[in-house]
Simulated assay, not measured.
Amino acid sequence: MTTTVNTTRATTSTIGALVRTGVVAAVAASAATMAVAAAGHAAGISLEVGGAPIPVTGFGVLTAVFSLTGVVIAALLSRFARRPRRTFVRTTVVLTVLSLVPDVIVDAGTATKALLMLTHLVAAVIVIPAVARRLAA
């Protein structure tokens, strides 16, 4: 009798589960960033950048687009990276920090810049851990 050793790495989920989790996280992050933007606007913080107003729904749309881009990155890393979770977290933290750079240099008031940066961080805090939990360590 012979035994076969399975040398494939165990993954914590399938791509389908990763995508489902990512979509749910993207929707939650979009709603959260719209809520933060609306709350900031209600508190008197301008949503004008360069003289043009940013609609509250714009926060949600851009959050969804970039969150889903993160899900695609996670799916690719789950297939090709040796340590997908660690690589995903490191990559997305760096991308989050880089996403703050335009907020710092944009033509807007200090409170508006802070609100923009807060929305980026809120989205990251929701999406990164949710998706990372679905990746193999």
Score class of each variant (00 low, 15 high):
residue 26 A to V: 10
residue 52 A to N: 15
residue 41 H to G: 04
residue 52 A to P: 10
residue 1 M to K: 12
residue 81 A to P: 03
residue 90 R to K: 03
residue 90 R to C: 02
residue 16 G to L: 13
residue 105 I to E: 10
residue 40 G to C: 07
residue 115 L to Q: 06
residue 86 R to F: 09
residue 123 A to I: 00
residue 14 T to P: 08
residue 4 T to C: 07
residue 15 I to F: 06
residue 115 L to S: 05
residue 8 T to W: 13
residue 51 G to R: 10
residue 132 A to W: 06
residue 90 R to P: 00
residue 56 V to F: 13
residue 105 I to G: 11
residue 37 A to K: 05
residue 92 T to S: 04
residue 77 L to E: 04
residue 96 T to D: 00
residue 113 K to C: 03
residue 32 A to W: 00
residue 88 F to W: 03
residue 31 A to T: 01
residue 116 L to F: 01
residue 65 V to N: 11
residue 136 A to R: 15
residue 17 A to L: 07
residue 26 A to I: 12
residue 127 V to P: 02
residue 120 H to I: 02
residue 4 T to W: 12
residue 71 V to F: 03
residue 128 I to V: 11
residue 134 R to K: 08
residue 131 V to H: 01
residue 25 A to M: 06
residue 85 R to C: 06
residue 11 T to V: 06
residue 136 A to D: 15
residue 86 R to S: 06
residue 111 A to E: 09
residue 80 F to S: 09
residue 77 L to F: 05
residue 137 A to Y: 12
residue 5 V to H: 15
residue 22 G to Y: 03
residue 18 L to Q: 03
residue 26 A to W: 15
residue 33 T to R: 12
residue 30 S to I: 02
residue 41 H to P: 05
residue 56 V to H: 14
residue 74 A to H: 14
residue 54 I to P: 08
residue 9 R to A: 13
residue 124 A to V: 00
residue 83 R to I: 04
residue 16 G to E: 12
residue 29 A to E: 02
residue 68 L to D: 07
residue 24 V to C: 10
residue 73 I to K: 13
residue 49 V to N: 15
residue 5 V to P: 11
residue 6 N to D: 14
residue 33 T to K: 12
residue 53 P to F: 09
residue 27 V to N: 09
residue 107 D to A: 06
residue 74 A to F: 09
residue 46 S to L: 13
residue 44 G to M: 12
residue 70 G to S: 11
residue 31 A to I: 00
residue 27 V to I: 07
residue 89 V to I: 11
residue 27 V to A: 12
residue 119 T to V: 02
residue 45 I to D: 05
residue 107 D to Q: 07
residue 7 T to Q: 14
residue 56 V to E: 14
residue 31 A to Y: 08
residue 32 A to V: 02
residue 83 R to D: 05
residue 39 A to T: 11
residue 74 A to C: 11
residue 135 L to H: 08
residue 23 V to S: 09
residue 18 L to M: 12
residue 113 K to W: 02
residue 52 A to W: 11
residue 102 P to M: 08
residue 43 A to L: 15
residue 72 V to S: 10
residue 84 P to S: 07
residue 101 V to N: 13
residue 107 D to L: 04
residue 72 V to T: 09
residue 132 A to C: 09
